[in-house]
């Protein structure tokens, strides 16, 4: 019984990891590609880690809960890196299938000013 649950968790985790990467390879613009790895892959690795937790806890060497730490870490860091990547993409004005709100793009430093150093940099 336990083995069935474990196998199901492992297969589910691997499947989600695969689907996340498939999204990365298959979707058409950067912003939609961002969704695959941040969500599907996080859950995939999450269920693999739960499987590992159950496996090592039931081998009779005491509880093994430290996989929770990796899961927690991934759930905290995945959104942060996704947000930063999206911000960098907006900054670089990547091609998008959706209409980008003008304010978000306008906030990026003006391309023209980049070559000419501003007053501050000259002073330094």
């Amino acid at each position: 019984m336990l083995e069935v649950i474990l196998s199901a968790l492992i297969l589910l985790g691997a499947l989600f990891t695969f689907i996340g990467s498939l999204g990365l390879a298959r979707l058409e613009d950067f912003y939609t590609r961002l969704h695959g790895p941040t969500k599907a892959t996080t859950l995939g690795v999450g269920s693999l880690l739960i499987a590992s937790m159950v496996y090592f806890s039931t081998r009779g060497e005491g509880l093994s809960l430290h996989e929770l730490l990796v899961t927690l870490f991934l759930f905290i860091t995945a959104p942060v890196s996704a947000h930063l990547l999206a911000k960098a993409a907006l900054h670089l004005r990547l091609r998008s299938l959706a209409v980008v709100p003008p304010r978000a793009e306008a906030s990026a430093p003006q391309q023209a000013n980049r070559d000419a150093p501003s007053d501050e940099t000259v002073q330094r």
Binding site: T38, K39, P79, A82, A86, K87
Partner: peptide
């Protein structure tokens, strides 16, 4: 939270 939930990523 938004980045973790249904089909949305906070961008800016």
């Amino acid at each position: 939270t938004i980045s973790l939930t249904p089909g949305t990523v906070s961008a800016w």
